[in-house]
Structures are given as C-alpha cells and as structure tokens.
Design a protein around this nucleic acid. Structure first.
Length: 803
DNA sequence: GCTGAGTAACTTTTT
DNA sequence: GTTACTCAGC
C-alpha cells in the first residue's frame, strides 16, 4: 500500500514547488510554443502528436514536472505508462534531472505490464489467482499449449501450437476473454481455438500463472466487473500520461479509458506515422480516434524537428505522404544546410555490404566535405534480421567493429532459462513447468516414458511434480540410471530448498562481502552462493563444461553473468520476480562500433549517419506484409520507411540490389516502390561502385537502371527534369577506381603469429584450421562454418595439436 | 533414450 | 543458407 499513502519521498520537491511558484519555472525554458502548450494544458484530454525528432520526451517529462511543481498531483498520483523498460527508465531519469533532485516517489511510472503486475498482485483473487502468481514467458506458454493440443488429439503438424498461441495472443490483445469471442472467429484453429483458449485459461489459473497478455486482460476484467475497485484507482490516479500511444492495442486502450473516464485528465503522446507494430496488435485506430473517444480534447502538434537536415525531412515526408489514413503533420526545421538523401544500386547483397563497409571507413576519415565521424555515430537499419549476416560477414573480414542490437535477449537464452528454471523450482516447488524443463537437463536418462510416469504419479496423488517424482522414486517406478538420477535430483531440490529457507540471516554489505547480522551458529548462505550451489550440484555447469560446441564457452560466460546479476537483488525470489518483466539486454558499451539493427529496433533512436540497405520490392516493403494485410500492410511498411529515414541526422543512404540470395536461392529484385516515392529534388543518385574483378557490376547496374526507368515510367515520378538531370549527372561522373580497402604494406605488429595448419578458435565461427595467411588476414577452414577470411585479431589459438 | 540424418519453413518483437 | 523439429536406427 506504500505506493498509495506514502508521500514523504516528495516532501522536498513539494517544498520547492511552493518556492518555485513565485519564480518562472526553469523547466519550461527553451520549450517551443507547441511543446509549451502541451505542457501547460493540464486539464482534460490532450493528444500530443509528436513527429519524429520533435522533442516529445522533453515535452512529456516537462509535463510531469509541471504537474508536480504546480501541486496538481503528488508523484504517486501520476500514472505514466510506456511500452519498454528502457523508455520508462529514460523518463524517470529525465524527470529527476529536470527536478534537479532524486525522487523515488513515482511508483506508477512504468510499462503497461509492470504496472498491471503491481495492480494484479493486489487484486489477484478477483480473477482466481493468488497474489504470488508467476508470469510465463512465450516459451512456457508454448509448451503449455502443446500439451493441450496433443491432449485434444489434434495433429500439431497441420495445426501447429504456435499458430494457436498467435490466435490466443491476438484475442488477448483485443481484450477478448474466451466467453466473448465473436462468432466470426469461431473457425479459428480448426474450430477448436475457442475451446482450447478456454482450457488454456483454466490451466493457467490452476498453475497460478499468467502470460503477458493476461496481465492486461485480467486488469480490464477486474475493472469491468468490480466498479468499486475501478473507482478507487480512478480517484487515485489524478493524471495519466501515455507514451507511444499509436502502439497501444485494444486491451491497453480499454484499460486506459476505464481509468481515465472519471476526470479525463489523460495525455497521450504519439505519432500515427510511426505506428509499426500493427502485426502484434497495435491499433493505429486508437490514436486516429482519440478526439472522438475523448470529446473536448486538445490536440497539440509538435512539428518542429530538431534532428534531421531539410533534405532528409523532405524525403521522409515525401514517402509518408503516400499513406491515406493520417492525422497529418508537416515537419519543418530551422536548419538549411545538409546533404541530400543518397541513393545507390548494387549488383548483389555482398556488393552492397562491401560498399557500405567502404563508406563507413571513408566517413571515419571524413570525405566529400563531411566531418570525420565516429563508428558509434553510424547505423545500418535493415528490414529483416537475415539481412544482417551479409554485413557481419563483411565487417568481420575487414575488421570493422560492429554491434548487433536486438539479438536474442539475455534472459531468453537457453542456458539462462534453464538456470532460471532451477531457481524457480527451488523457490516454488509447485512450479511444474519449471520442473518439466529441468528434469532431464542435463541428461539424466529420463525420457518421455519416465516423465509420463512422474506425471501420472503426481496426478494420482494430487501433488506437484516434485512430490510425484519423490513418490515414483520411493515406489521404484523408474528403473535403472534414470531412477537413481531422479532420486539425486529430488534430494538436491530438498537440500537447496532447505538452504533457501536458511538464507536471509546473512546480508550483503556495500562491498558485496558477506556480513553476519546474527550470531553465527547455523551455516547459511547468501542467495548468490545458493545459486552457484544449485547450478554446480545439479550438474548443469558441468554439462556445459563438457560440451565441445563452440558456443559452450559463451554459455558458461552467460551463466557467470547471471550469477553476477544476483548482486543487484536481495534474494532469489526478488530476482525472479523482476526478471520476468525486465528482459533488457545490457549493451556492452566499450568501444566505438557501428550499430546494425532492424528498423523496428531503431525506433526512438537517432544517428548522424544512417544506411538503409535492401530497399527492394518484396523485401521492403515485405511481400508477406502485403499478402497478409494488403493496403494496410503496405502502409505500415511505408511508415517503417519513414521511421528509417527520420533516424538520420546528417547523412541518409538508401540502397538496393538487383540480385539477392534469399533462402538459398538467387532472386532478382526490383527497386522498392518507396524509392519511386522519394522526392527527386532531395535525392542524390550515386554512381555505382567500381568494377570489382570483371564487368558484372556495370552490367548489373545497367539492368537495374533500365528497371528503374520502367518503374519511373509507371509511377511517373522520376520523369521530372530534376530526375533526368540526376540521371545524366550520375552517368557522366567518372567511375571510381576500386579503392584499396587496406594498406598493402604490412604493419610489423599486425603480422600474424599464426602458422598454416594451426588449430584456432573464432568467437562466431568456432574451431577451424588456418589454411592461408595474407598480411593480417587469415584464411581459415572452419569445422562448422566453412572457409572464411578473417582478420587475425578476431582469432585465438588453441592448445590443441594442429591436425 | 539418445543421436544423427532428413525435412519443412523461414518478417518485424516487447512484455 | 540456416535452423528447428521429427523420425528412424542404434
């Protein structure tokens, strides 16, 4: 309850609010008129339409500070929701910064999910849960569904459980409980979807668990069925703020509307042009409908852009103008200087990667009158993650440091999830899903049959799987190695549970060293020691130590990191609680690196220099998106293009290839239709790169260009004088000579210390043998990845005898 | 019960 | 081309 009645944390701030009232409020300084209006319009519904780079976060945080400083609300009476933990963290930091002091008193600033968990724990019993319910991630969810699907006797080849998961998620996004599924959806998942959904929900309650979608769905249900509860929160949350409103789904929308329906002090911030999550339930309609949903609302448009040069803005505006369902904004900037958006075609993906690599190296030195840039000022934004590989391969070869953003998240990795399952089963032995996960990991000789026996025994005795396993062992139901291994496991769980209960009398001081707070009579453990013991005793650590695959060392590293993370928590329970909601990846920050990421991952970020490769019809816009969602899909792809271009501050380079190797096949591609939509006056068509090893490059470009002309004839966009001038210019420009990508003279220090035949290890490609040496580059025949050329600094020797 | 070979499928992703 | 998943054979 402390989040509701505690206000001491803000005592200091409210004092200064009184002092502040007499003076101009410094946090308003420097806001432009639109931003200021968005901050000062405190009462009633406000829609802040904030274009890319228009200082949205600044306005949003200033608004929170303004609410606090003017005494309209105490920090714990402001509900501020974001989509990601990152955004929540940033907002918290900036509020603190603006206030000029730390306030820990904003308990209701967080993600939709984090806030809903908090609320649901208070009211869990209203939907049949206990307040200590567990939150399943998508993996657990899928495993549960698979069980239900096979129990229902459905051929999961024709009807994959994954599909059912998608159907159920979509329903939950639309806030539909099993009893509310419209008849139009009755055919879903071979007409069994609705029934399985109902079963799944019952099963979750049995397990005292929720999935991510439930967090919101349950809260909406509670608010709808228990007006008294709703009213309590309507009164408590005096002001509501929502970030990235264009990304809200129906459930989130309903939740917000229910909470805001009393005082209607809701401020939604968003940009309909940046709605790119329709495929996971986001409804652009929510933002388009805002004025109807909240009559008497004030709409504020933030249109002054502080990020990009005029050409970049014009190009982005030109593309997005092709969409019909828009609220409409016109971005402008005081800036007058700047590069045009650069456009270039290449023969194939490899060529594209090579060219971009060279451009990056050139940009580091500073060319064509541009300032020299740092690697971390540059980013490559792709439509689909499989495009990343070409760049990784190329950058590895030329030794260009890069960082991939948004790969598999730390807590989603196999080894982390396994380790967490061990922790979970110790913390809550009732967690059958966790038991299933670890019972035969590492291999204990407990296959399907043994596991079935455990299940049956548990069910027959009405106990959880750990107890079921104990009984099965005692009754000798599982023979041989499996039986003795299972006995060891059950005993292990008992021992760890005992250690967990003993834990708590010792705490960590600031140096992380162990301090005894009570007399040292019983041996007890910190949760960190306990975690180590669990992983070692269970044989899980040994399992990876014995594993010879190239990724095993990395996995052990990750386990170490997991243990490390425990230092931030007081006990295992607290750790598990947080991890299920915070799936962030800590980025290794050291060193300047080029960023490679998807367009989706780039939303909200900005870079001085941006490369947008792969603008080919079918890839971008994605064929699948268009097939599945038609015009709606195309418009979302177009918004994605808009997001991509508007990430660039100074230089934006778009490229396409005429041949791409996808799914093991060469496919020729047409330039993206979005290229035709780029306003020609703001585009600089670059000369294709030099002819590397033959004439194919030129031939390819000729082909691409003739296609581009065809496309232009259809679209009649590039028939303008400007386009023809650009075309002519690009043709008369001399073809650049192939650049030396590296110094041919070998720096003595760079001469590799490797010998042909030596066995070596590479972080990404694993083990291999050196077959050739060229300067600082090694040609290596990798056991798994084939022959590749790699800069020697990425290679480490092994102690193995060369083979 | 485990391992290796063969086979489908293959965007985007946060919580 | 890669990966995740299934089935047959040891």
């Amino acid at each position: 309850m402390s989040d509701f009645d505690e206000m001491d944390a803000f005592e200091g701030a409210s004092l200064s609010a009184r002092a502040m009232a007499a003076r101009p409020q410094p946090y308003l300084d420097g806001l432009n008129p639109a931003q200021r209006a968005a901050v000062e319009q405190m009462d009633g519904p406000v829609l802040m339409l904030a274009g890319a780079g228009t200082g949205k976060t600044r306005a949003l945080t200033a608004r929170i500070v303004h609410l606090l400083m003017t005494g309209r609300a105490r920090p714990n009476e402001v509900l501020a929701v974001t989509f990601t933990n990152k955004a929540a963290r940033e907002m918290k930091n900036r509020v603190n910064q603006m206030l000029g002091q730390q306030i820990e008193g904003m308990p209701w600033l967080g993600t939709f999910h984090a806030i809903c968990v908090k609320l649901l724990r208070r009211h869990a019993e209203l939907v049949g849960l206990k307040s200590n319910f567990t939150i399943l991630d998508t993996d657990d969810q899928l495993r549960l569904l698979k069980q239900l699907v096979s129990a229902a006797g459905i051929d999961d080849k024709r009807w994959p459980a994954r599909q059912l998961a998608g159907v159920i998620d979509a329903w939950k996004n639309r806030a539909l409980t099993p009893d509310k599924i419209p008849s139009a959806d009755a055919g879903a998942y071979n007409h069994k979807g609705v029934e399985l959904y109902a079963q799944y929900q019952r099963r979750l309650i049995d397990l005292n668990a929720t999935d991510f979608g439930d967090l919101l769905l349950h809260m909406v249900t509670i608010f709808q069925k228990h007006p008294d509860v709703l009213e309590q929160y309507q009164r408590w949350f005096k002001y509501i703020l929502v970030d990235e409103y264009q990304d809200t789904n129906v459930a989130q929308y309903l939740w917000l509307r229910l909470l805001a329906s009393g005082h209607k002090n809701i401020c939604c911030v968003g940009d309909d042009d940046q709605s790119i999550y329709g495929w996971r339930g986001a409804e652009v309609g929510n933002i388009l409908r805002f004025e109807k949903d909240f009559p008497g609302s004030h709409v504020v448009r933030l249109e002054q852009n502080y990020r990009s040069t005029p050409h970049i803005l014009a190009a982005a505006s030109g593309v997005i103008a092709g969409n019909t369902d828009r609220l409409g904004k016109t971005l402008w900037t005081e800036e007058t200087e700047g590069e045009m958006v650069r456009l270039i075609g290449h023969w194939d993906g490899e060529e594209e990667a090579r060219w971009i690599g060279e451009e990056i190296e050139a940009a580091q030195r500073g060319t064509r009158g541009l300032r020299a840039m740092n690697l971390d000022e540059m980013a490559i934004l792709v439509r689909a993650s499989h495009q990343m590989r070409a760049f990784e391969d190329r950058f590895l070869t030329i030794g260009l440091p890069y960082r991939v953003i948004g790969g598999p998240r730390f807590y989603e990795r196999l080894e982390i999830r396994d380790a967490m399952a061990y922790f979970r089963i110790v913390v809550s032995p009732d967690n059958d899903l966790a038991f299933e996960r670890i019972v035969n990991t590492p291999k204990r000789g407990l296959g399907d049959k043994a596991q079935q026996t455990i299940q049956i025994t548990a069910r027959a005795n009405g106990v959880n799987l750990v107890e079921g396993a104990r009984i099965a062992v005692e009754q000798g139901l599982i023979k041989g190695k499996g039986g003795s291994e299972l006995r060891k496991l059950v005993e292990g769980i008992d021992r760890w549970s005992a250690m967990l209960r003993a834990n708590g009398t010792r705490i960590l001081d600031d140096d992380d060293s162990v301090v005894d707070t009570e007399t040292d009579t019983t041996p007890d453990y910190t949760h960190i020691e306990l975690a180590e013991v669990i992983l070692d005793d269970s044989g899980y650590t040994a399992h990876w130590q014995n594993d010879k695959t190239p990724e095993a060392p990395g996995r052990l590293e990750n386990l170490k990191e997991l243990i490390n993370q425990l230092h931030n928590f007081e006990n295992l329970q607290g750790f598990l609680e947080h991890v299920s909601l915070i799936m962030d990846n800590e980025q290794e920050g050291e060193g300047a690196k080029v960023s490679i990421m998807t367009l989706h991952a780039a939303k909200g970020l900005e870079f001085p220099m941006v490369f947008l490769p792969g603008w080919e019809d079918g890839l971008f816009p994605s064929q699948r998106s268009m097939d599945e969602s038609g015009l709606k899909g195309l418009e979302e792809e177009r918004r994605l293009a808009y997001v991509g271009i508007t990430r660039a501050e100074e230089v934006c380079t778009i490229s396409f290839v005429s041949n791409r190797f996808v799914f093991g096949q060469w496919q020729s591609a047409l330039p993206s239709r979005f290229i035709d939509e780029l306003p020609a006056d703001h585009v600089d068509v670059l000369t294709p790169p030099g002819l590397h090893g033959g004439n194919y490059g030129a031939a390819g470009m000729a082909e691409v260009k003739s296609r581009l002309h065809d496309a232009a004839a259809d679209a009649n966009v590039y028939n303008s004088p400007g386009w023809r001038r650009l075309q002519a210019r690009s043709q008369t420009r001399p073809v650049s000579q192939p650049r030396e990508s590296r110094n041919t003279t070998i720096d003595a220090s760079a001469v590799s210390s490797f010998t042909v035949g030596e066995r070596v290890f590479h972080q990404k490609f694993g083990y291999g043998a050196v077959v050739g040496i060229e300067g600082d580059k090694l040609e290596i025949d990798f056991e798994k990845a084939g022959t590749k050329k790699v800069v020697s600094k990425f290679i480490t020797g092994t102690d193995d005898i060369p083979f």
